[in-house]
Design a protein around this nucleic acid. Structure first.
Lengths: 182, 182
DNA sequence: ATCCCATGTGTACGAGCGTACATATCGGAG
DNA sequence: CTCCGATATGTACGCTCGTACACATGGGAT
């Protein structure tokens, strides 16, 4: 029995959990599947994350950070001279492009919060962080509505097979933003 | 072994499934839990619904009909002389009031479609039906956006502990509706 | 240098699951 | 009246799951 002293094991388990959820869905997440994916014994996953909820919280938190990085990379979002609606629509386009593993994972964990109280604060935090980021460009209420509409549009794209229409998103988001008072 | 000839058994199983999901969540749904709730033997649930997906489709379809009735009861939605945004906001208020078992069930099944392809058409149908109903009051694109925003607002209310704010919903929905051209 | 405890490992148990299937029943078609 | 196929029932198999626990190990505090 080799392999001892594995300092980043906890992190590797979280990464494995994210891969598992991305590939097999939240229903396919178990201590065992994660252990297999992370190539660690079963006891190791139960040691670091007593409850599956614990593991989900860690995974959702990490997924949130990934999204936050995507947002941060798009610095134009906070630049008051850009078209906010267009920037948000483009952000969604970028997020929804390519394989949607990341988006699906984010939403699946996000929505799991509906039934799993421990996830609720993390899910709420995601919405709040994005709204807080947007608030300076408009106002807190509008920011909340923008986040809600983005959620709804993403959901429609994920649940129906309608492809993402950036022009439509930009138009709809734009209507939510009250005209500037120069 | 009494109890033979039970004509509405299929329907009773669907009702039981809805109660199970409402009480224990989608994760608590199994052939056995439904059988227990409907007070029928295990073999009966597997006979009428070979796959759990089959059962979920039936349950989601029924939940959709329940929502459709709620909408139909609010005839003012199709009356062009009413304030559409206000009507929609009031509809959401009514739906989210009281115990949220119905809403949670609807969304949980709705969102399960993310990973269960058989559910997708039923979920898409829900969004489409509502959008089709709203389209005559504005235009198809605006109707889609209204549905998306409603989805997003409901989700925010369900996932965070922020109470439903009808005034906010009305204001946001109103902004999506382009001014009438008299 | 010593020792302790956080960390890592292997195994076992009982419960619940989907599924399959042999058998029983009986409404309604003929 | 007869009979057939849709419906109903009970049981069993093999699997995965969460959980618990006894034991091994070695990094770092002392």
């Amino acid at each position: 029995m080799p392999r001892r002293y594995d300092p980043d094991r906890r992190q590797r388990i979280i990464d494995a959990a994210i891969r598992v959820v991305g590939q097999k869905g939240l229903a396919g997440l178990s201590h065992r599947t994660v252990a297999a994916e992370a190539d660690v014994p079963l006891g190791s996953t139960t040691y670091h994350f007593t409850t599956l909820d614990d593991l989900m919280v860690a995974a959702l938190r990490q997924a949130n950070e990934g999204f936050a990085q995507l947002v941060a990379a798009r610095g134009a979002l906070t630049d008051p001279h850009t078209d906010l609606a267009a920037e948000l629509a483009a952000l969604m386009g970028e997020w929804l492009a390519g394989d949607r593993t990341g988006v699906e994972l984010e939403y699946e964990l996000y929505l799991a919060a509906l039934r799993r109280p421990p996830l609720r604060p993390v899910a709420a935090e995601w919405a709040k962080d994005l709204a807080d980021l947007l608030a300076p460009r408009t106002d807190p209420t509008t920011a909340r509505a923008l986040v809600a509409l983005m959620d709804g549009i993403c959901l429609q794209v994920l649940l129906t097979d309608v492809p993402y229409d950036e022009g439509y998103a930009r138009e709809a988001l734009g209507r939510l933003i009250p005209p500037a008072s120069p």
